[in-house]
Amino acid sequence: MFDNLSSKFQKVFRHLKGHGKLTEQNIQEALREVRLALLEADVHYKVAKDFVKTIAQRAVGQEVMGSLTPGQQVIKIVNEALTDLMGGTAAPLELTGKSPQVIVLVGLQGSGKTTTAAKLARHLSKNKRRPCLVPADVYRPAAIDQLTTLAGQLNLPVFPSSVDQKPEDIVRGAVGFAREHQCDTLIVDTAGRLHVDQELMDELRRIKAILEPQEVLLVADAMTGQDAVRVASSFHEALHITGVVLTKLDGDARGGAALSIRAVTGCPIKFVGVGEKLDALEVFHPDRMSSRILGMGDVLTIIEKA
């Protein structure tokens, strides 16, 4: 299937074959297409605008490589810039310091925190760590049951919290529990909340102060639209998140939220969720995400087809 953006590019550049250098004029129309593609992928309006500006600066004056058309050259530049913006290479979890090390998962309602907690536990236990799951969502009906069931499927320890406890007391108790059970990592599942809910954001601040976690990961849905910037910046301002997990990438969302979130927080996207099952967690690859946002399968093969 021939993709949208590159076929549009072909049209834009048909009359440009043979030009040696990219000029302000001849990339203008192409950059308009890039901007529209980014908006269609749900990249935030301002982020897309700034990005296109950067591209223009990068591209003007560049020689068109012998094997490429000007359109392919622009795609190449766009793809490289997108990849850079999303962090270049994959960022691992930073779990060092005294035991137990702590990962806290935060995010909006339904983004995938509880499922991701279990996926991370599985991932870490495959990497010779001893994780313990901590259900600290006392609000959503059956949230504790959900994480406890998932822990059971993985055969991993789970802190026995109950809905009449305060989340602060749960996480305090969990530290002792981890020591008793020789666990070196706590993975704390918190209730979904709106970034504008001050009371619940304060609760997260208190949980963070108690645990001093190594990682505070924002779990965000890859289908998120323009609101992603506001959500991510609010969570980041309140909690200084250390990274992002982008979930539900197994659908057909282009995932422009990845770019928006990265741009406003500067935090790396560490993992992506690619399914409901507990093995459906992958390390984030900025280059793949870039191709996906542009809606072009694999940009490199398109360029190589030249």
Binding site: E40, A41, D42, L108, G110, D221, M223, T224, G225, Q226, D227, V231, G251, D252, A253, R254, G256, A257
Partner: peptide, 11 residues
């Protein structure tokens, strides 16, 4: 549909 969802809701 979730109001937080962007263009993917169309699909």
């Amino acid at each position: 549909l979730d109001a937080t969802t962007g263009q993917n809701a169309i699909s």
